[in-house]
Amino acid sequence: MAKILVITSGKGGVGKTTTSAAIGTGLALRGHKTVVVDFDVGLRNLDLIMGCERRVVYDFVNVIQGDASLSQALIKDKRLENLYVLAASQTRDKDALSTEGVGRVMDELRESFEYIICDSPAGIEKGAHLAMYFADEAIVVTNPEVSSVRDSDRMLGLLASKSRRSENGEEPIKEHLLLTRYSPDRVTKGEMLGVEDVEEILAIRLLGVIPESQSVLKASNQGIPVILDEQSDAGQAYSDAVERLLGKETPHRFLDVQKKGFLQRLFGGRE
């Protein structure tokens, strides 16, 4: 049974596309046929983060409008055979999406994929609404920062009330919290909200905590999803998150301040 997962947040710039790429890749690595769909029409980024921007011919809007078939628009990932990308249009805007059109594409994707990851745009308007409308599960990406938490809270309210599942009275969307750009140092200093604070305010299940990491920027620029950088803390944290998504209980890492060894402090410079 295919699962539609939406990666959403409300707030912009918290790490939705990074997360979509990482989780999509993580699932494909574990043998599940996955497609990642970019819903940010006009401001597409997913193709850059996935490293397939040079191979985009047809996009999501083309498929909705019947200019191209789904198989023509889907881009196969070069590194993994189970992974596909459906890019967004760069020239159009969100008005080009329609509920019926998106619904048709989702139905068609459900026929051949196990996981459909919907990378939502920021905000709560049409693009974000359509990204979450058909979802079965949602990963709400939040930075441990007040405005991000407030916007995630709003998004949780919308997930509970404006999705197709809620409109049809079906079981509600399963919500997960993913805390990104977490810095245990700053939490200890009292500058940043801690995991418990965010969990208390949002009251949903914690999927994972991704530490603030320089590897994320490196990964974006190279077009390689950060989860493939197995040395980086962020990559490992995403790997743990995928395990938890698939039902395995894994202890949370990178929550505490890493004690630096003597040599590390001497030669390591800033973490």
Partner: peptide
């Protein structure tokens, strides 16, 4: 009985 979210 369910949390009341911002905006509701």
């Amino acid at each position: 009985t369910t949390p009341v979210r911002g905006g509701q």
